[in-house]
């Protein structure tokens, strides 16, 4: 066979292969249908917290390498006064390659009573070794949080709260407000460790979304005192346990209550 004929033949074969790839791409959804979102049976935590659960504040920041703002989209903490509560969710999302494993997210269902002002939810993923603690992005592309606004009568004080001190080592020992979540290896049942190794480290590894079709997260503002949101992960390592940060911007009344339930959702 002549040179030109061989070039033509191989060119046609290459074209056929490309066509096959495009056909595979087009019909792969029908040939390999995606498994539907499914709740894994079992509630991971179901606990009610009162204003005594706000152990930190008043302060304008949340832990990061440099202190992060609490208001979604605000990088530098201002003069706002927030009260913080950390809750161990006893769960973690599963991220990675969807071709080889089923991914999952954590569904958080909350019910609040007596909320005054704004309550902002952020999330942290605990890590081991030198890996920085994971969290949702505070500013910029794909920054996310969940904000609930309530108009109950205001409280006068938050007696359990003391301000968290900014650590120059960028490491924090955080007391959680629940004690029924499973103990984490090497830690006591009431504290968890955060470590941030460099500016921006760990940010964006976790996302908060109210719509699983948008797994990279969004800022959701609602006045619904009962609702659901999801903690998702799209990176390599979401951490091995999740903490939920609940921050409120003013003292709550004595009848304040927050019920939190978590479930694992296969996506």
């Amino acid at each position: 066979m002549e040179f030109r004929a061989r070039v033509g033949l191989v060119f046609v074969l290459l074209g056929c292969f490309l066509g096959l790839m495009l056909v595979l791409d087009t019909f792969s959804g029908e040939m390999f249908p995606q498994q539907e979102v499914a709740i894994v049976p079992g509630v991971l935590i179901d606990q009610t917290f009162t204003k005594a659960g706000f152990l930190y504040g008043p302060q304008s920041w949340r832990p990061g390498y440099d202190p992060l703002g609490i208001e979604p989209g605000v990088e530098q903490p201002g003069n706002s006064r927030w009260y913080l509560m950390f809750i161990d969710l006893n769960a973690t999302p599963v991220s990675g390659n969807p071709q080889v494993k089923r991914l999952g997210s954590v569904r958080v269902t909350y019910n609040m009573t007596g909320l005054v002002g704004r309550a902002v939810f952020h999330t942290y993923g605990l890590t081991t070794g030198t890996m920085p603690t994971r969290t949702n992005r505070q500013t910029g592309t794909n920054h996310c949080a969940y904000v609930v606004t309530g108009n109950a009568p205001a409280g006068t004080s938050m007696p359990a709260a003391i301000p968290l001190v900014v650590q120059p080592t960028h490491q924090y020992r955080i007391a959680i407000s629940n004690n029924q979540a499973a103990d984490y290896a090497g830690m006591t049942s009431t504290t968890r460790s955060f470590q941030f190794t460099q500016p921006g480290a760990g940010q964006g590894a976790l996302h908060i979304t109210s719509d699983l079709k948008k797994p990279l997260g969004m800022v959701t503002e609602t006045s619904g005192l009962n609702g659901t949101f999801y903690v998702t992960a799209t990176g390599g390592n979401p951490g091995n346990d999740l903490l939920l940060l609940v921050a409120v911007d003013r003292p709550q009344a004595d009848d304040f209550a927050l019920r939190v339930r978590t479930e694992f959702i296969r996506t």
Binding site: L14, F17, L18, M21, L22, V23, L24, D25, T26, G96, N97, P98, Q99, V100, K101, G236
Partner: peptide
């Protein structure tokens, strides 16, 4: 390799058909 090793790759996200064209 990426599929078996579970490493997220760009061509998985954009589709192997489109990735084939850009590689060619």
């Amino acid at each position: 390799l990426q599929t078996f090793l579970g490493i997220p790759a760009g061509f998985i996200l954009i589709g192997i058909g489109t990735a084939s064209i850009t590689h060619v």
